[in-house]
Design a protein around this nucleic acid. Structure first.
Length: 198
DNA sequence: CCCTGATTCGC
DNA sequence: GCGAATCAGG
């Protein structure tokens, strides 16, 4: 694949939209994210308003490893213009979690009159999402709190007040705290929530 | 481990 | 000009 005008245009557009290099590469096809990044630099449209992945600015300290010190000094004095932090286009609203019934054990540890977090009723969750969640929970890794990592789904399953409590633990969806299935019930477009309501 | 962009340098 | 390899950071 080569950088045709059209492909370059797509690159520019997506980069401008804040898409990541890998996303752009995926969209274009036939190129790696490295290729995209390389092109971005050659096009001189590097530092964009990121919003998602904070660019750690410049790394002036160059490091030669096995290479003979080839003096190729390239002082790149970039004025570093001020950038109005831009943000996500997709409007999403976190839904409150777990439609699990409150067990007697839980009732015991929660003072009477204590308002529980809003529990979404099953009818607020799309049937498909609900089904996939049920399915996924069988395959869940059943992690304990301490076993959770950045990459594990943090969707709680069961009752915290009992031994029958664990976290999904499947691989999370990029940038989200939950796996794909649980993201499906945790994050819903406002529109679909509104439509489903009452 | 997953991802992000940045840089270098042989091609 | 290109992009894999590598680096640095989250």
């Amino acid at each position: 694949m080569s950088w045709t005008d059209e492909r370059v245009e797509t690159l520019k557009r997506m980069w401008g939209e804040g898409q990541s290099a890998s996303q752009i590469a995926k969209e274009l096809g036939g190129v790696t994210r490295n290729a995209v990044i390389g092109k971005v630099h050659r096009l001189g449209l590097s530092n964009r308003t990121t919003g998602a992945a904070p660019a750690p600015a410049a790394k002036p300290a160059a490091k030669e490893k096995p290479t003979p010190a080839a003096a190729k000094a390239k002082p790149k004095a970039k004025p570093a213009k001020a950038e109005p932090a831009e943000e996500k286009p997709a409007r999403e609203e976190p839904a409150t979690q777990s439609a699990a019934p409150v067990s007697p054990a839980r009732k015991a540890i929660i003072p009477a009159g204590q308002p529980l977090p809003p529990q979404p009723s099953a009818n607020e969750i799309s049937p498909e999402a609900l089904a996939s969640v049920r399915e996924v929970e069988k395959k869940a890794k059943r992690l304990t709190l301490m076993e959770l990592t950045e990459r594990t789904c943090k969707w709680p399953i069961g009752d915290p007040a009992t031994d029958d409590f664990w976290f999904c633990g499947l691989s999370v969806q990029q940038g989200k705290p939950y796996c794909e299935a649980h993201v499906g019930v945790a994050f819903q477009p406002m529109s679909s929530r509104r439509d489903r309501r009452r």
